[in-house]
Design a binder for these strands. Structure first.
Lengths: 243, 243
DNA sequence: GGCCCGGTATGACGTGCGTCATACGCCGTG
DNA sequence: CACGGCGTATGACGCACGTCATACCGGGCC
């Protein structure tokens, strides 16, 4: 609205996104010209299931969860972070968004109108490849999810979840691996497909046992092996032997 | 091996595949030149999890299940039919196959070496679009699966499964909708994520109640509404009021 | 024929986890 | 301050489903 600072934000944003790295300076300039930046507070909906997908959405910073609404409770399909495109498939296929997107943190987005998006795609085969690679990544994640849902105990699934989160966005600290993500028990439940109560029971027990500590907007894993042991079935997870 | 008939099979196979429709006559000829046809009996593995993906595989006729092996039992991720590509993602990404593929029926395949596949991709942007669309279709299926796994009773999931199969490959007959697919109870169990016993219990009860009849290598749905009623929760599914 | 084997069927038993209910701490608001 | 709402926590109860065991049936093979 006020002139220069906005344009600066867009240029630096475009530069920060890996998908745009391979483009020519000319294409990048064109994107800067047509893209816009928007900010959202925690909890805001980027869009709702069924909304029309008019622009490609790329995350500059912050994290976004993608949620599918179902009669038997919601399901969190994926969490996206900086540099990643959200809902690219819907934009590509001219379809309404199949799921809602909600900010887990204060978030900034770069929006590129569909028209430009397609132009880029046709001109840059490697850009198309980036999309396919992204889709593949998502598929792998979903397959993992389907596989986990089958059979595995809930405690195992939650352990798996935090191991994955640790790999994707954990940082080493003196207390262990820290995951800086404000997830409520409700959200954890939605990610592994269970109820709040069950999630709470497991997480609070883990807190007591020191397997996983819940802090202010973050989690800490003191010892990774204890989680992997739970996943492997080498449990000894409290229930049985208690002094 | 004997000369001419093989070449004929390839040309007619290439013509039968929707993905190749949009290609120029020249490109099609090139594919005919380099692609090969192979036949498999029921039960044969096209490949195993972890095998190297050297060729793009397209189904000419027959059906193929894609199975992920897990400690807690296998999971059937998807069933592919005529005209569809199997394992396209693996070939595309130079990765080993993430899951095994097994024939449900006698099957014929068209194999196109990766090299050609990529050539086509770079030359035909609309070919790339076909791939992305295919990927999208798969993703939608997986999301549906994840969503179903969460919460829904097993009986509901199996009902859902057969409704989907009916839509995708059912034919109307005087007895009801017929699904011509030789699935064992074991395979049904693997598709919805449960054990053989549970699958058997539900299916045999349905047989008694006339909800779904198992025949020789096929299933018959006398009344679609009864299945949708189970999915909706408007059950009255035998358990309670009897006699 | 007798044998084995894979698919189907049915029962008995235990339990993980969903459901319902209750309670506590924290925060923003009137 | 009291009040209500939201997230977290914990107990009691029941049931759907997994597990284990047994049995029947048809087909292939010697």
């Amino acid at each position: 609205m006020s002139g220069t600072p906005t344009a600066d934000r867009v240029t630096s944003a475009v530069r920060s996104i890996p998908m745009f790295r391979g483009l020519t300076a000319r294409d990048q300039a064109r994107i800067v010209e047509l893209a816009t930046v928007r900010d959202y507070p925690r909890g805001d909906f980027l869009w709702h299931e069924g909304d029309d997908a008019a622009s490609l959405t790329l995350i500059i910073h912050g994290r976004v969860k993608v949620v599918r609404h179902a009669e038997a409770g919601d399901v969190i399909l994926e969490i996206f972070g900086p540099g990643e495109p959200v809902g690219a498939i819907a934009v590509y296929n001219y379809m309404p968004y199949p799921a809602s997107a909600v900010c887990l943190e204060p978030t900034s987005l770069l929006l590129l109108p569909r028209r430009e998006y397609f132009e880029m795609l046709d001109r840059n085969p490697e850009f198309a490849r980036a999309i396919i690679r992204e889709l593949t990544r998502l598929m792998v994640g979903l397959v993992r999810k389907v596989q986990e849902m089958r059979g595995a105990r809930i405690e195992t699934r939650i352990a798996q979840l935090f191991l994955t989160l640790a790999d994707r966005m954990g940082t080493e600290t003196k207390d262990g691996i820290e995951i800086g993500l404000p997830l409520s028990r409700q959200e954890i439940a939605e990610m592994v497909g269970t109820t709040v109560e069950t999630a709470i029971r497991i997480m609070s027990r883990w807190g007591r046992e020191g397997v996983l500590i819940t802090g202010q907007r973050r989690f800490v894993i003191p010892a990774r092996e204890r989680l992997t042991a739970i996943v492997e079935g080498t449990a000894a997870t409290g229930d049985e032997d208690e002094a």
